[in-house]
Computed example of a mutant assay.
Amino acid sequence: MDTKVSNPARVRGASVRERVTNALRADIITGVFVPGQRLSEADLCSHLDASRTPVREALRQLEAERLVEVRPNRGPIVVKLGWEEAERIYDVRELIEPEVVRLFALAATRDQLEQMDEALAEFERASSEGLNPAQLILATTTFYEVMFQGCTNDILADILRGLLARVNLLRSRSMSRPGRPKESLKEMRDILSCIRDGDVPGAQQAAITHIRNARVQAKAAMPARSAP
């Protein structure tokens, strides 16, 4: 099995377990492994160039993140994220993220804003150089992680981090829609611009708009049986 996208998760300095977990997570999120596909340990060892121990640890971690489920007599398979669950995820995001944006906007440092700028520049490069799902997801994750770290409420940030793997799975689907990467970039720039200008309500509304548009695009990208 050959990975079809460049995987930014394969970074120097990471432990074998981290490398394998990050690589497998990225492969699931970007569709190298499809929903319902059985994940054979032997095949994964070959695909990820790793022994069985880190592969098993990665599968356990991704099961905790609800990207993998273990079924009796079948072993681990890639989860099928249906629209009902996706709707609940977007509902939670719309409830929590505006408050995270508000808290971050009140405490943001120049360095944090520059990090968000850099993440959006990387997003733009990834989309202009030929759609690279893994790079787009990584840049978006970096943009949000800066806000999570700077929002001054660890509980809210941890709730959203707990949804991150499934949010990124939905992001990968929505980003596959024609024109969506460009729209998403503009929406994230609107959030950052309002934060820079001290327009907290504007930043919150921009965040809500971003989530609602992502919801529409993710639903359109869902298989017909999953999105009634």
Rank of each mutant, 00 (worst) to 15 (best):
139 A>L: 00
139 A>S: 08
139 A>T: 01
139 A>Q: 00
140 T>V: 11
140 T>P: 02
141 T>R: 03
141 T>C: 05
142 T>A: 13
142 T>N: 14
143 F>A: 06
143 F>L: 10
143 F>T: 02
143 F>R: 09
144 Y>N: 05
145 E>N: 08
145 E>C: 01
146 V>D: 08
146 V>P: 05
146 V>E: 09
146 V>L: 05
147 M>C: 11
148 F>Y: 15
148 F>K: 12
148 F>W: 15
148 F>T: 07
149 Q>D: 15
150 G>I: 11
150 G>T: 11
150 G>H: 10
151 C>K: 03
151 C>D: 00
152 T>W: 04
152 T>P: 04
152 T>V: 15
153 N>P: 09
154 D>C: 07
154 D>H: 10
154 D>R: 14
154 D>Y: 09
155 I>L: 13
155 I>R: 06
155 I>T: 10
155 I>V: 14
155 I>W: 08
156 L>A: 12
156 L>N: 08
156 L>V: 05
156 L>M: 15
156 L>G: 07
157 A>H: 06
157 A>C: 10
158 D>W: 04
158 D>P: 04
159 I>C: 11
159 I>K: 09
159 I>G: 04
160 L>M: 12
160 L>N: 06
160 L>W: 06
161 R>W: 01
161 R>G: 00
161 R>M: 01
162 G>I: 00
162 G>Q: 03
162 G>A: 05
163 L>I: 02
163 L>D: 01
164 L>W: 10
164 L>Q: 09
165 A>F: 02
165 A>G: 02
165 A>R: 00
166 R>P: 05
167 V>C: 11
167 V>P: 04
167 V>F: 08
168 N>H: 04
168 N>L: 01
168 N>C: 03
168 N>Q: 09
168 N>T: 02
168 N>I: 03
169 L>T: 08
169 L>R: 13
170 L>R: 05
170 L>E: 12
172 S>K: 03
172 S>T: 07
172 S>I: 05
173 R>M: 11
173 R>P: 01
173 R>K: 12
173 R>S: 06
174 S>C: 10
174 S>R: 14
174 S>G: 08
174 S>W: 12
174 S>Y: 14
175 M>C: 10
175 M>K: 01
177 R>S: 14
177 R>L: 13
177 R>T: 15
177 R>K: 13
178 P>L: 05
178 P>F: 02
179 G>R: 07
179 G>S: 03
179 G>N: 04
180 R>Q: 14
180 R>P: 05
181 P>Q: 01
181 P>H: 06
182 K>Q: 07
183 E>P: 02
184 S>E: 13
184 S>R: 03
184 S>G: 06
185 L>R: 05
185 L>K: 01
185 L>N: 03
186 K>V: 13
186 K>I: 13
186 K>E: 14
186 K>N: 12
186 K>A: 15
187 E>G: 07
187 E>M: 14
187 E>Y: 04
187 E>P: 03
188 M>A: 12
188 M>Y: 13
189 R>M: 12
189 R>K: 15
189 R>A: 13
189 R>T: 10
189 R>Y: 10
190 D>I: 00
191 I>R: 04
191 I>P: 03
191 I>F: 01
191 I>M: 09
